[in-house]
Structure formats: C-alpha cells, structure tokens
Amino acid sequence: MFESLTELLNQNDIFTVATLLQYWDGLVTTVQLVFLSLVVGLVIAIPLAILQSLNNPFISKPIWLYVYVFRGTPLLIQLYIIYYGITYIDGIQESFWWHIFKDPFYPALIAFALNTAAYTTEIIRGSIAQTSRGEIEAAKAYGMSWWQMTRRIVLPSAFRRALPAYSNEVIFMLHASAIASVVTIVDLTGAAQNIYSRFYAPFEAFTFVALIYLCLTFLLVFIFRKLEARLLAHLRPRTH
C-alpha cells in the first residue's frame, strides 16, 4: 500500500514524498503557532475585557490604547518590529532571553498573540457591554458581590454571545499566520514558497497549500458550528 503510493508520487516532480513531508512539517508549525497564539491571546484578553468594563479611566485608557495600537497597525509591521526590533536591545544577545528570541518562532508567537489579544479584548468587551440590565439588576437583588455577578451572570452569557465573532477571529488568525514565512519560519506558506522556488512551479505549490488552508478552515467552521449549536441553543426560536 505504502509502496504503491510512493510509486505514484514518484511519477511527478513536485509532489514527491520529500515535498509532502515539507508540507506536513509546515502544517504542524502553522497549527502550533496559531493554536498557541490563540490560547495566549485569550488568556490576555479575558482579564483586559473585564477590567475595561469597570469604567475606571485609569485602567481602561491604557487598555484602550493597547487595543487601538494593535488593531490600528498591520500585523506584518508588528511582526517586523518585534522580530527585528528585539535584536537592537542592548545586551540582549548575551542574556538568557536570546535563546528564546534567536528562534524566529517566539517573536512571531509574541506578535500574533498580542495582535489576537487586542481583537479578542474588543470582542469580549463588546459582548460584556451588551449584558441585559435586567440580569444585572436581578443579580444585585440577590445580593451577589461584583465578582460573583461577573463570574455567574455576566461572563457566561458574554462568552456565548462572543462566540460567532470569535470564530471569525480564529479563522482570520489562521490566514494571517501565513506572514510568519517572511521571518524564515517554515509554516505552510513557507513550505509552499520553498517548493515553488526549487521547482519553479508556483501554481502547483500554492494551489496545494490553499487547499490545505481550506481544509483547516472547514474544520474550524465545523467545530464552531457544533459549539454554537450547543451553547446558543437557548437563543434559537422554538420549533413547536
């Protein structure tokens, strides 16, 4: 079985076992990078969104500024600034941190995580602000503290409402990760570029990688649809 597959692949120049392995490594890198960015981004975004909804100007202004800067500049520029900018910090190359920042993966992870955190903060803040007054008044009438109210009433419903918008952010992040290849990370796009430049076959190399991205997107859409069906069931109109 495996041998006949190898034989089939050897009939063309571009999609050999070796190049498919390159694509596979690229896929692993892309999934790692996007997944870690989203996790770190979410961990940053949730506290920031809660703090923002406190309406304390000393807290919300700096958060607003952070969100504004990261939403207001292209991700590619942020990546360049973090990737190349870090090397200009005096003494960094002799410090312990250089082991981390020498690798292009971590500067890219930082840029992507900060970027998606800014967008996610805005998504969650928006849906916290939409919590109906009646629910908050009811919680207060029960004598809940601010933290109890936030934990039991505000956040669960805010997360549910944020889900459709957040699924968009996840898919955008997957596609935005293609720019990781400009700082020498061999993600899916990087693998396609290497294969294209080795075989001078841009159409085959990039079409194949586009299909992989399509499959990944389809998987994400499917997961979020299932999640929404489960978590937003109470918002669907009754059918009987």
Binding site: Y84, T87, Q93, K102, P104, V182, T184, V186, G190, Q193
Partner: peptide, 18 residues
C-alpha cells in the same frame, strides 16, 4: 537552513546575531 526573500533581510539577521 534559513531562507530569505532578499539579501537585505539576510544581512539584517546576520547582523542581528540570528
């Protein structure tokens, strides 16, 4: 092997210690 689109980016990373 780290691959770059242009020689300028290559030099930037060599100077940067990467």
């Amino acid at each position: 092997i780290m691959r770059y689109g242009t020689a300028d980016e290559l030099v930037l990373d060599l100077y940067g210690g990467r």
